[in-house]
């Protein structure tokens, strides 16, 4: 037990050091660079809010367009950037693997934590500002909402772990995530709710764990919306499955990594 506590302390120290190191290269040297992290999701939200407005598309009853889009787009962004950044974590930090305490899993944990915290902050700020000017301040179930955000990050980093470790064996693995992300963007419920689609389609679309995760966030935020068709255990099962593949794969990849 004591050894475990010491080990945990070392692990936290290393992930902390890696996060600080990542902020340097991710956001540049000056502190304004951090603002850039906000720009990308804001541009997406702005674009789609504009399209909704000009095309006269209505959001589901009881949901304002910015809040509806932010809960969808930012949650999806958490998933996507966690995959992207985790996937390249090993390549970008190979030199640091010379320190015996630093292992590939730590590199991934550090990057995913940084992305998750940054984008969760973006989501909170967007929703708060929006509730002052256009929407309402809701929060129906904070725990459910946070759970959805956390799942998005964990699923992303777990998939990133599989991809990063798999990429050590075959470059094909890394290339396959791009084509996977594009359809996911359209079918994960960023632009619709599970209530609004025909039952036959819903049945199929609920195989996608990201759809569940986004619905969790919306259910948690909106007082008037209850995601009746989702199951929290479903994305949890995916997470377990991905971890089950990714963790041994990372162990195997350690041997194959060539340090120069």
């Amino acid at each position: 037990m004591k050894e475990f506590a010491i080990g945990l302390g070392v692990e936290l120290r290393i992930v902390h050091a890696l996060i600080l190191r990542e902020t340097r290269t991710r956001f540049g040297r000056n502190q304004l660079g951090y603002l850039w992290a906000f720009a990308e999701p804001l541009i997406w939200i702005g674009t789609f809010a504009g399209m909704f407005y000009f095309l006269g598309r209505l959001t589901p009853a009881g949901m304002d367009s910015i809040g509806f889009l932010a809960t969808g787009i930012v949650t999806f962004s958490i998933f996507r950037t966690c995959v992207d950044r985790s996937m390249t974590a090993i390549d970008g930090n190979k030199a640091l693997l010379f320190y015996p305490q630093v292992r590939p899993l730590d590199l991934i944990a550090a990057r995913a934590t940084l992305e998750l915290v940054t984008l969760a902050t973006v989501l909170a700020i967007v929703l708060c500002i929006n509730s002052v000017f256009l929407g309402r301040f809701e929060i129906d179930n904070l725990l459910l909402m946070m759970g959805g955000v956390l799942f998005a990050g964990l699923l992303g980093s777990a998939l990133g772990l599989v991809a990063a470790s798999g990429a050590v064996f075959s470059p094909l693995v890394e290339r396959s995530t791009g084509p996977l992300m594009r359809p996911l963007f359209w079918i994960s419920g960023l632009f619709f709710c599970s209530d609004d689609i025909p039952a036959s389609a819903r049945e199929i679309m609920l195989y996608n764990p990201i759809f569940h995760v986004i619905e969790m966030v919306r259910d948690g935020w909106y007082l008037s919306y209850t995601a009746r068709y989702i199951n929290i255990l479903y994305p949890a099962g995916w997470l377990l499955g991905l971890a089950f593949i990714g963790l041994p794969l990372e162990r195997a990849a350690r041997r194959r990594l060539e340090l120069t």
Binding site: I14, H16, A17, L97, F98, Y99, P100
Partner: peptide, 25 residues
């Protein structure tokens, strides 16, 4: 760690930043 010519420093960080990292680790 194995002290040598190879690896161990992140190229985009300065010498100082690399030292800070190692001190933390």
């Amino acid at each position: 760690w194995p002290i040598g010519f190879a690896g161990a420093f992140n190229g985009s960080l300065s010498g100082e930043e690399n030292c800070r990292f190692v001190a933390r680790v």
